[in-house]
Design a protein around this nucleic acid. Structure first.
Lengths: 140, 140
DNA sequence: CTCCATGCAAAATATTTGCAATTCA
DNA sequence: TGAATTGCAAATATTTTGCATGGAG
């Protein structure tokens, strides 16, 4: 139930809990895949029909600020938001159903630092995503 | 001089060589960092002042199709184009001057396949970028 | 009751398309 | 010459901002 945790966190940061925010938060928290603002709008309106698209944008912005959600970049677009994982994790995304799964990659840090050294770069951050087909989409 | 190679490749694919295309191609081929359509427009107009922004969009689209250039996704935007490297390489980008450098990462493929197996994914592709500070930007 | 938050409308951006004029091969 | 290309203008699409109303605390 990360939705409740998110709402608590929003409250802790001094933000008010409104039906509009609850609808957006629950929609993103429960989705197995990254959603665009427009998709969040459509889904969240099933919970709260008078929701405005502007509020979706503003709420997603706050969720990103608080590191509860993160933007996911894919070939088909860079505006989708996904629930964030604990710690520094990386994404594995199904190209068919878009389902996203996190995985650990601690082992990689040393390698990245080493690559940086070779090119006289001080590596501070990295960005890694794997794409493939998940079990459910293997056939069909 | 990849600009000449690119122009030859465009010609080989049946596209005509025009001053507008030459200006765009040379601009992107010579840039040490990824450029947005709007940046390409500004820079390429120094070579060919009557160039239109639409032509920039259309030419970049073709360069991407032919795998001569690739889109680069960064936190501050996802519409920048960079000369593509030979084979499958990854990017190391300076957060200050945005300079981009390619590096090999063949060693990673097995690791990625392994990660996929753990989650019942058939990994087909990956996407990796490192961010840091380059030698020139280390101070200041 | 006091602000914060909302959602509409409008503005600002970014990208794509229709089309007549131009130009490469 | 004939078809591909260009660049303008206009159409779309996306995201942000101004503001009066409404609702959380």
């Amino acid at each position: 139930m990360s939705a409740k945790k998110w709402l608590k966190e929003l409250r802790a940061q001094g933000y008010r809990l409104t039906d509009a925010r609850r609808a957006v938060v629950e929609t993103v928290a429960q989705s197995p895949r990254a959603l665009t603002p427009s998709e969040v709008y459509d889904l969240a309106r099933e919970r709260y029909p008078t929701l405005g698209l502007v509020t979706v944008y503003r709420t997603l912005e706050k969720l990103e600020e608080l590191h509860l959600a993160q933007r996911v970049h894919q070939d088909d677009g860079c505006n989708a938001y996904l629930a964030h994982a604990e710690g520094h994790q990386h994404l594995l995304i199904c190209e068919k159903c878009k389902k996203a799964v996190y995985f650990e990659g601690d082992d990689l840090d040393d390698f990245f630092t080493e690559v940086g050294k070779k090119h006289n770069f001080a590596v501070k951050d990295h960005w890694l995503q794997l794409f493939g087909t998940c079990e459910d989409c293997k056939y069909g």
